[in-house]
Design a binder for these strands. Structure first.
Length: 424
RNA sequence: GGAGCGAUGGCCGAGCGGCUGAAGGCGGCGGCUUGCUAAGCCGUUGUACCUGGAGACGGGUACCGCGGGUUCGAAUCCCGCUCGCUCCGCCA
């Protein structure tokens, strides 16, 4: 959600954002409703003022004067009731439209219509050259006994899987590596609720637009979060923080659930696109300052790169173009890790700046030294997500005999082991 | 799941139809005091929106968990919901 004052004063910026992000929103209608809402509010407040002054005079009056005042107040009350009913629908429409106003992309964000317009900023590492025919992660994982698809498919449906044996340990290892890495950077570990109310989904910007992406527990009116970002940001919902608390840096760890509603039939094989995964997520709540926010953004990006470097996985950083940005995102960097079987860099991390988009929805503010309450800025980035990250690990670290060498950084979390051998 | 109790400002806590944006205390801030001194005294102290003003600041409206109702008038009465606590039951 954006500041309505900003929207009123900068309709052109919003219009451009709507166009470049390809958002479906009638801005003129919003401005119209805003105008109607304001003038009706003024009318209502004038009526209330009248009623209040009558009410306070009534106890002091006697006889006819008192009766007249009561009658007049009744009349005012009726007019008020009519106006209040009228404003209800206006207010509802206004609130709904406000939920669809996009954040304005940062100046450096390229205008684009698809992934092809993202700008590659840098690459790290060299894609491994194999002197044998490499297997893909699916073949490797199956032959090493790291995963079971056949069973889960029957009782859990498509895109389901069970990690087994060393697959479980490998997943725990990457999660621990990432979590410890960001904890060392001063982030506070949090394992937040993943079953949340609609208010948290709306507050973080996932609802109403991406309602179809989440699993709903209808019976209890709860939703499964697709990222711990929801739980972490919502931790401070409706709060006025003190300035000294900022920036707040969290390392969330949680199961993540995604319906992949718009991706039917895409990436159905293997561990790339699944409904349920584990993720260590970085979330920052900082001052309402674009510069400070940018610094935090770069810090988040750096953390993720360092984790991939610790794993010695080749990757690249791309600046997402306008249409690739989510509704609230101001800027986003994709971190893409080289996946040998796909012969391409594929997204494993996503680093976003949202300015006050989430904080306004979630009512997260802080009090400045001068006593003003400002909405915080929020940011987030993946630290690691599994099992997707297992794809480049298995494929990159595979050996000719079908075994997989465990990356050095993970060995301390794998009982010091160096290799995963095929089952006999 | 059953029974009961509760939700008031940053915190504690009074109010239980008009005099209450809300007593009192704590905390915070400003000032005074400097022989009650890790203290005393005085003042001040919420949030949002509308509106006037360059600003300082002023006017108005709303908010006593949330939403509705009764009433000329609701923190106070009624209904629904949410959350918390206690007891019973069930249970990782």
């Amino acid at each position: 959600m954006l500041d309505i004052n900003f929207i009123r004063e900068n309709p052109d910026k919003i219009r451009t954002a709507i166009k470049n992000k390809q958002v479906n929103l009638d801005l003129d209608r919003l401005l119209e409703v805003d105008q109607a809402r304001r003038s009706l509010t003024q009318e209502i407040e004038a009526l209330r003022q009248k009623r209040n002054s009558l009410s306070s005079s009534i106890p002091k009056l006697k006889g006819d004067e008192r009766e007249n005042a009561i009658q007049e107040s009744k009349t005012v009350g009726q007019a008020l009731k009519a106006d209040e009913e009228k404003i209800q629908s206006i207010e509802a429409e206004f609130k709904n439209l406000m939920l669809f106003v996009p954040g304005v992309p940062a100046p450096e964000v390229p205008v684009g219509t698809g992934e092809k317009d993202n700008i590659e900023l840098r690459k790290w590492g060299e894609a491994r050259k194999f002197d044998f025919t490499p297997k893909d992660h699916l073949e490797l994982a199956l032959s090493l006994g790291l995963v079971n698809f056949d069973g889960p498919r029957q009782y859990a449906g498509s895109r389901s899987y069970a990690l087994t044996g060393d697959g479980v340990l490998l997943e725990l290892a990457v999660l621990q590596l990432a979590l410890n890495h960001v904890i060392r950077k001063g982030f506070t570990a949090v394992s937040p609720p993943i079953l949340v109310k609609e208010t948290a989904m709306q507050g973080t910007g996932f609802f109403p637009l991406h309602f179809e992406e989440s699993y709903a527990i209808e019976k209890d009116e709860l939703f499964l979060t697709g990222t711990s970002e929801v739980g972490l940001v919502s931790l401070h919902m409706d709060q006025i923080l003190s300035e000294e608390e900022l920036p707040i840096r969290y390392a969330g760890i949680s199961d993540c659930f995604r319906r992949e509603a718009g991706a039917a039939g895409r990436d159905t094989k293997g561990l790339y696109r699944v409904h349920h995964f584990q993720k260590v997520e970085q979330v920052v709540i900082c001052h309402a300052d674009p510069e400070a926010s940018l610094k935090e953004h770069m810090l988040l990006l750096q953390n993720s790169e360092e984790i991939l470097q610790a794993l010695e996985l080749p990757h690249r950083i791309a600046l997402a173009c306008s249409v690739e940005l989510g509704l609230g995102q101001i800027r986003k960097h994709e971190v893409e890790t080289w996946m040998p079987s796909r012969q391409t860099y594929s997204e494993t991390h996503s680093c976003s700046t949202l300015h006050d988009f989430q904080a306004r929805r979630s009512k997260i503010r802080y009090k400045t030294e001068s006593g003003k309450n400002l909405h915080c800025y929020t940011l987030n980035n993946t630290a690691i997500a599994s099992p997707r990250i297992l794809i480049p690990i298995l494929e990159t670290y595979q050996n000719k005999d079908g075994s997989v060498t465990i990356p050095k950084a993970l060995r301390q979390y794998m009982n010091g082991r160096e290799i995963i051998e095929p089952k006999k």
